[in-house]
Design a protein around this nucleic acid. Structure first.
Lengths: 346, 346
DNA sequence: CTGAAAGCGCTTACAG
DNA sequence: CTGAAAGCGCTTACAG
């Protein structure tokens, strides 16, 4: 309309888009100096630093992260890719990572694969388009293309949850195989001889399957029968654990112990047994995996394996930051281990 | 070293950074056409679209989201700001939002304020530097600057969790005040007359305080004594609920019911009562808030108020997307309501 | 439907 | 310690 209106750039900008240039003008310095004050303040004399800080404050300048990321080909963003957000376990890892990254001024970008490795590949691909500073990804199993892509990316990548050989870059987790074996040992030592393993969607949840494999090895070592794992095609939940308990007791009269793939299922089984008047561990022993805080509070208290999930997230983020900042990041792989917590349920 | 090496731009790029230009060259079209094929394929003839698609595939081109965001001043990213990641309630909202946004090709950027409104302001400020397409933020209470900043941003913002007047833009939630009142009505109707409210860090958790205010109004209406809320300075947890139960029973012999600020606390109280041999609801009735799936499984089953947390996230994300895409987003505010689930604990 | 030009707001690499 | 120039990889706005 008004011909006289000055055109800034190609469109009518509301006057409120404050850029580096505006700050520089106000402070009477060049834009690069402003950039330095923000990113590497030690490289600027105190005199100018002060002037620039005043101008930033006065104008309410907010750096455009996007422009910075484009120019430098990196951003203060770290994607974390997990199989699912409906599982408390991954959320705790995210929480641990968030604590550390946030304190360092990094933002977490969330991705979930729905336990689908092809989706994971597409997601990782897209997320790399954000020029992240590094990446955290759950698991050691990925498509070959995902592995190749992340490896040739040449930025820090931490694979979390399970501990194992040949990570893409760094790895923080625990051996689910050993954990399964340890629980098997515990059950056998307590005198149980007919032990079942119960999970949910075991095909997708290969870490749970590794726990089963560990149990299997243990039972074989003791010359005991190892039943095939009982897997239900539903999202793991407390209800599901109770249902599984009832079905198994009905199907297999000799059963004297159940090792559930996780605490949700196991707690569901204990609560269900309570309601049905089934004696735990007398009629059936129950064990879980994860070490949720509810475990010690149910009756009988749950025997389970504690995995340090938040710590996994924290360690992963700490190693990532060390590498991003060019500091020593310590060992490339960390086995955070696990511990068995004996409760009254076995 | 090798003088003959061509310099592309200012540094030696590894040959593997495929850009729009490379795709355009290979397809024999201009870069803008490639851009259109990616962003608005309908605006390109099928002939060229096909050629470009082939080139993209052949080169394994991944669009640089950062460059796109800078050029267009918007990105397919949506920050979600919540008070805490250690609370399952917010995680479920995040999950609901993620489901919807992910399906639409948007990425979620995570921020937590640790229940600090100043931190929230700084976080919102930083996150705007990512040129997000919209924002989801928990709560209706923010600093005046945060409100002004988001309002003048002129992009869709959804405030979630509680429902109330004067949102910044859109609002999806429920009335915690009414929910507290409703639980009060239930308890009074069941014959309880000495009712306490128990929470954790109520100063920070103002939504829990609103539930207390609702209870207070109800008790006054019935001419009953309303005790001050009992708040503990620790993160809400199952253990804490059990401890609070024991302390209150000891402090206040007349007490016949406790309304806990959330289900974690209430379930902890029920489990503790069970272990201590305290009769629920005979000696003391227990009620919660949230509707966690564990509630119906403990003994006695928990009376609680169900809040549709995942749905809040889904609705918020859906409205955001509608506005982003210029479609009708429906009502600016949505009261998702709540429902009281009667269990055996009252 | 297609393209040449200009620009988004920063940072890199160089020079002084 | 400070700055002028060039460029990051896209998209906008315009023209045809």
């Amino acid at each position: 309309m008004a011909k006289s209106t000055a055109r800034i750039g190609r469109k009518q900008l509301p006057p409120a888009t404050i850029t580096l240039k505006h700050v520089a003008e106000r402070a009477g310095v060049s834009p690069i100096t402003v950039s330095r004050v923000i990113n590497t303040p030690d490289a600027v004399s105190e005199n100018l630093r002060e002037k620039v800080a005043v101008a930033i404050e006065a104008l309410g300048y907010v750096p455009n992260r996007v422009a910075g990321a484009l120019a430098s080909a990196k951003s203060r963003v770290v994607p974390i890719i997990v199989p699912s957000l409906s599982n408390i376990v991954f959320l705790e890892v995210i929480q641990g990572a968030q604590d550390v990254l946030d304190a360092a001024g990094f933002q977490l970008l969330l991705g979930d694969t729905q336990f689908d490795l092809e989706r994971e590949q597409a997601l990782a691909n897209t997320l790399l388009g954000w020029s992240p500073a590094g990446m955290i990804i759950a698991g050691l199993r990925h498509t070959e293309r995902t592995r190749a892509m992340l490896r040739s990316w040449h930025r820090p990548v931490v694979e979390v949850m399970e501990y194992g050989a040949r990570p893409i870059d760094m790895n923080v987790g625990l051996s689910h195989y050993k954990a399964g074996d340890a629980m098997g040992e515990h059950l056998v030592s307590r005198g149980y001889r007919n032990i079942a393993f119960v999970g949910a969607r075991l095909k997708a949840d290969y870490r749970a399957t590794q726990r089963f494999k560990g149990l299997e090895r243990c039972l074989k070592r003791h010359g005991l029968l190892c039943r095939p794992p009982f897997s239900q095609d539903a999202i793991s939940s407390v209800e599901l654990g109770g249902d599984a308990l009832m079905r198994l007791l009905d199907m297999d009269k000799k059963l004297d112990a159940i090792f559930f793939a996780n605490d949700d299922l196991a707690i569901g089984a204990i609560l269900r047994a309570q309601r049905e008047g089934i004696a735990v561990p007398k009629r059936i022993a129950i064990a879980g995996f994860n070490g949720l805080s509810l475990g010690p509070l149910v009756q009988p208290s749950l025997t389970t394996i504690m995995s340090p999930r938040q710590r996994i997230g924290q360690i992963a983020a700490t190693k990532l930051l060390a590498r991003i900042h060019g500091r020593d990041s310590g060992a490339a792989t960390v086995d955070v281990g696990f511990s068995l917590r004996e409760g009254g349920s076995t």
